[in-house]
């Protein structure tokens, strides 16, 4: 089913999404990948504030290529989500509502998605040029020294993604080829 949703998500909307839904996201999402997750984990351990409020927000696992002159961002597709699995359950327990990436997640992540009524979306890996066109505004908000791995606030319009794991515990990858 094709759906249009806004980000941040609402509890109700996140729970209503189903594995296999083709979804267009409009609104605000935040980028973070390996190094940013490590720093956010360290910040939580030290009792410090995170670069953005987790509550109902979506993290896009993305490290873009640099923007050409006159452009706001370069190629901007998803990276493999499993490298963030170690950090994800705690972020979900603290309010994170959605993730955009690609590839399989651990059982711990699947459980945390169900526990928190959250959702995991896949964007198409290797479609970074196309996906970049759906990003309308970019601002680095933390960890600028990490370069491509810095945390960015993105305003997106109709970013095309597919629901892979939903709040009911369904997993599209597990039904593939069966």
């Amino acid at each position: 089913m094709d759906r249009h949703i806004t980000a941040p998500l609402t509890d109700q909307e996140a729970k209503s999404l189903r594995a296999g839904d083709y979804v267009y996201i409009t609104g605000t999402v935040y980028t973070a990948r390996d190094a940013a997750h490590k720093r956010m984990q360290e910040a939580l351990e030290a009792g410090e504030r995170l670069p953005f409020e987790l509550e109902n927000n979506i993290i896009y696992y993305l490290g873009p290529s640099p923007a050409r002159e006159g452009k706001i961002i370069g190629s901007a597709g998803p990276t493999t989500a499993s490298r963030m699995d170690k950090y994800t359950p705690e972020l979900l327990d603290r309010g994170l509502k959605g993730m955009i990436g690609k590839g399989k997640r651990t059982k711990e992540v699947a459980d945390a998605i169900v526990r928190n009524g959250a959702v995991y979306f896949a964007a198409v890996g290797g479609a970074g040029a196309l996906l970049s066109k759906r990003i309308k505004k970019v601002e680095v908000i933390a960890y600028e020294d990490l370069g491509t791995e810095a945390v960015r606030r993105l305003e997106v319009e109709d970013l095309p993604v597919i629901v892979v794991m939903d709040a009911e515990g369904n997993n599209l990858y597990e039904t593939v080829g069966k």
Partner: peptide, 26 residues
């Protein structure tokens, strides 16, 4: 769905070449 994704990748290749945006950010 597979065909839709492959169509998206075709479009991605066109955009990459025309606008000089790397095919993939990696």
């Amino acid at each position: 769905l597979g065909k839709q994704i492959l169509g998206q990748l075709q479009e991605n290749l066109e955009i990459a070449g025309e606008e000089m945006i790397p095919i993939c950010q990696d």
